[in-house]
Amino acid sequence: MISGAKLPSVTFRTRVRDEAIGGPNPYRWQDMTTEDYFAGKRVVLFALPGAFTPTCSTYQLPGFEKGFADFQALGIDAIYCLSVNDAFVMNQWAKAQELQNIGVIPDGSGEFTRRVGMLVRKDNLGFGLRSWRYAAVVKDGVIEGWFEEPGLADNHEEDPYGVSSPENVLAWLMADAQGVAA
């Protein structure tokens, strides 16, 4: 996708905590749309190949989590992590990572990822269809900045990481705040 493009309108199947349910698993299904996540807000969206995977769990997600205050200071209202994983996996990953600042978006069917052109095969890793790694700065559903890792391809032998890193997105936001971002 490119700057100025509008995100596709998709419905995500999420699971949310609801104490009224009681028991050991007090969660219910809740449909959330692209508009629910992005309308009227300036957000950072980053997508990655899979929950619980090394680069995602060690660098990318923790980096955005730890840097949240810096992003807020530059006008970011929310940061979302999207993966082609179901709501159960995404919720457990958020819990395991002890997230306080980052919201997770389960794109279990890969519909959103397909519609933004980032759905790739990762059969070489036993994953099937997954997201290519990217990040975006999105204002009211429209892309302001796009950060796609190089080499977008099915069954890529490597997992490039750097362009979509929290440090790179933050640097772009700082330059944008000074009026020098591309």
Rank of each mutant, 00 (worst) to 15 (best):
V16Q: 07
V16Y: 03
R17T: 13
D18H: 10
D18S: 09
E19I: 12
E19C: 02
E19Y: 07
A20L: 13
A20R: 15
I21V: 15
G22F: 06
G22I: 05
G22H: 08
G23Y: 13
G23Q: 04
G23E: 05
G23S: 08
G23V: 05
G23H: 13
P24C: 01
N25I: 12
N25G: 00
N25H: 13
N25T: 09
P26L: 05
P26Y: 03
Y27R: 11
Y27I: 12
R28D: 02
R28E: 06
W29K: 12
W29I: 15
Q30L: 13
D31A: 14
M32K: 15
M32R: 15
M32V: 09
M32N: 08
M32I: 08
T33E: 10
T33D: 05
T33P: 07
T33C: 08
T34W: 09
T34Y: 05
E35D: 15
D36K: 11
D36F: 13
Y37Q: 01
Y37V: 05
Y37I: 03
Y37G: 04
F38T: 15
A39S: 15
G40K: 10
K41Y: 00
K41V: 01
R42W: 02
R42H: 10
V43Y: 07
V44Q: 12
L45C: 04
L45N: 09
L45R: 06
F46E: 02
A47D: 12
A47V: 07
A47R: 11
A47Q: 04
L48K: 02
L48M: 14
L48H: 14
L48G: 11
L48V: 14
P49H: 00
P49D: 03
P49E: 09
P49I: 05
G50E: 07
A51P: 00
A51S: 12
A51D: 11
A51V: 04
F52A: 03
F52K: 08
F52M: 10
F52H: 06
F52V: 08
P54T: 05
P54F: 08
P54E: 06
P54D: 11
T55F: 00
C56L: 03
